[in-house]
Design a protein around this nucleic acid. Sequence first.
DNA 1: CAATGTGGATAGTGTAACTATCTGCTATGG
DNA 2: CCATAGCAGATAGTTACACTATCCACATTG
Lengths: 208, 208
Amino acid sequence: MRMAELSDRSGVPVATIKYYLREGLLPPGERTGPNQARYGSGHVRRLRLVRALLDVGGLSVAAVREVLAAVDTRAAMHGVLGLAQRNLELRAGQVDEQAKEWAVERVQGLAARRGWPVKPDDPVVESLVATLATLHSLGRTELVDRLDSYAELADRMAELDLSTLGGLPDRETVVEAAVVGTVLGDTLFAALRRLAQHHASARSFGDT
Amino acid sequence: MRMAELSDRSGVPVATIKYYLREGLLPPGERTGPNQARYGSGHVRRLRLVRALLDVGGLSVAAVREVLAAVDTRAAMHGVLGLAQRNLELRAGQVDEQAKEWAVERVQGLAARRGWPVKPDDPVVESLVATLATLHSLGRTELVDRLDSYAELADRMAELDLSTLGGLPDRETVVEAAVVGTVLGDTLFAALRRLAQHHASARSFGDT
DNA sequence: CAATGTGGATAGTGTAACTATCTGCTATGG
DNA sequence: CCATAGCAGATAGTTACACTATCCACATTG
């Protein structure tokens, strides 16, 4: 299969496919001449995955590249998952040092109670700290007060996520399913949460 | 307080504050002359909220404007919450009609089992349908097979979310807390989920 | 063998979120 | 009371991102 067909089958314009090739989101086709190449069904699959991560997952092209590179090198799974995290380095000086220290303490306490492994320079931990610090500086700490309850839900969800990966044939499939499940899972769960909130809110407050 | 001080106290550049004023993310100051205005502590709070929704929540300026307009008009709470949803209208024709119908059926079945209120044209429902359809077209239906389990977690989380709003003084505070809790809550929970996954993955697979 | 397609390079487009400059007017310290 | 700095509002410019379009020399195909 060549460009035009790849484009047809994936629904991605030719110009965009070339862009993804340049950006390393899609491996080059098998060369058959100085300016010809052949693509396979793997390219179609990959293209669909890329579009899903971009459109539904909301990742940037750079983030998709990192994630896919990790998938391709068969990195350890937990290493891959952290990459999917949107890195939100708050603008310098936005959050005062005090709020951040407070947040770090919360996270360390939580991690100790849960038995979670936290390295301070893990981007996921930094994201968590930044979010807690922001909540603190907004004066909205109700959520932080229930951090342990949310963490327990997170643990259950992680169990569910893992159970999802059982029975998958090979390691590459497992890693890909983990990435998809995590990234699209965030979007999916956010929507479920909204519906559940709507339901619970209507029950509690009789909102129309 | 005037511009310079508002900028200092909020950490947002003057030019950016003017931009937010133009965009309607920040109400105008109290006029004291044809080209003078005064700002209060409410403006500082609002500015911090705007930055939190933009930076941590990842909302667009347009989305923040919608959410804040809803907060200001004291709309019914569940109406406000849906607005915070990132609307992901997949590129036309990206998902085939079959996958979408399949997804709609799943959502309707789920809603019936859970007692959730779903209107087909609700953007949250559309987001959910689009995500399920994408998972289907990727061939990754493991997650969809466990949709009920995820929905149950969503229900528990919604309970937790609601309990967070108890004891808040006035309606405006409740609505603001709901928005912050939902939007920043998504970010927060995503990070918790990653840490929990890492933990569970290490236990199950002995990944280093 | 002509028309169409191809890979690769390069340049252009559209949008979002700022950022900078300009212009009269205003407040204030000396 | 006036020089200087700051102000609000308007307008234009910038940067980053994700494409999108055009060229070119060569390949394939009817």
